[in-house]
Structures are given as C-alpha cells and as structure tokens.
C-alpha cells in the first residue's frame, strides 16, 4: 500500500502561520518514518528557494527555516508547482535542498497510486 501523504501549502511569507502549519504536520509524518511531501503552490513556491524561508516565523510555531531543514533531514520532500514557479522566475538553480519543481501529472500519478492529500491551512 502506498502510504505517502501530500500536504498542500498555498501561503508564503505573507502569512507565516498558514505557511508553517503544513510543514509542522508533514514533519511529524516524516519523523514517524512515513513518506511525506509538502506540495507548495501559489506564493508558497517561494518557500522552496534558497533563503526563501528566512525570517518566516509565526507565534507559537517553529522557525520555518529550521523546520524545513529538519523535515528534509527526515527524508521529507518539498515539491513546487511548476505552473507557479515559472511566472515567478524560479528555476532549478534557485532551489533549496530537498526541493523539486513538479507538474500536475506527477501529483496525479501519486494520488492515482494511492497517496493521500491533506489540506491543513
């Protein structure tokens, strides 16, 4: 059985709480040794760039840059929506560790194979 979980993240630094929460949940999954992916769309794609999470912090939540490092260290993956990176000028050379630019087919393929998506924020 495919036990992959995909967490949607649509907010960037303009709303640190919404930007951070999917990573909090995904990191718990990754810590438990299960496959977790945070799928960033819209402004959240900026979180996947080098220093894109610098200074993003919501009250009561961990600093996003530390959290993402931990998440990637736990084999968590960050996917950025290719249709959202393109108009923002984000290319492969801007990506932080553990981050990949993907398209809709890649996500659909995972879901068809049994992955579940989770919307937290």
């Amino acid at each position: 059985m495919n036990e992959k979980l995909i967490f949607n993240c649509t907010w960037g630094r303009e709303d640190p709480e919404r930007a951070t929460l999917p990573f909090v949940a995904a990191n718990i999954v990754a810590t438990a040794g299960q496959e977790a992916i945070v799928l960033c769309t819209i402004e959240a794609v900026r979180l996947g760039t080098t220093s894109g999470t610098d200074g993003v912090e919501a009250a009561g939540l961990p600093k996003l840059c530390d959290l993402v490092k931990q998440f990637v260290g736990n084999n968590g993956k960050v996917w950025l929506c290719g249709a959202c990176t393109k108009p923002r000028g984000i290319t492969e050379e801007h990506l932080a560790d553990g981050v990949t630019i993907v398209g809709a087919a890649k996500v659909v393929e995972e879901i068809v194979a049994g992955a579940k998506t989770v919307a937290f924020a």
Binding site: G82, I101, G103, A105, K106, V112
Partner: peptide, 15 residues
C-alpha cells in the same frame, strides 16, 4: 527543458 516537465513527462506517459 522546463523543470516541471522533467518530472511530469514520465508520469504523464505512465498515466
């Protein structure tokens, strides 16, 4: 050449 296409095209073919 597009980074998303690199991930997407094989998935699309399989779908």
């Amino acid at each position: 050449r597009d980074p998303a296409a690199k991930e997407d095209l094989p998935a699309l073919a399989r779908l």
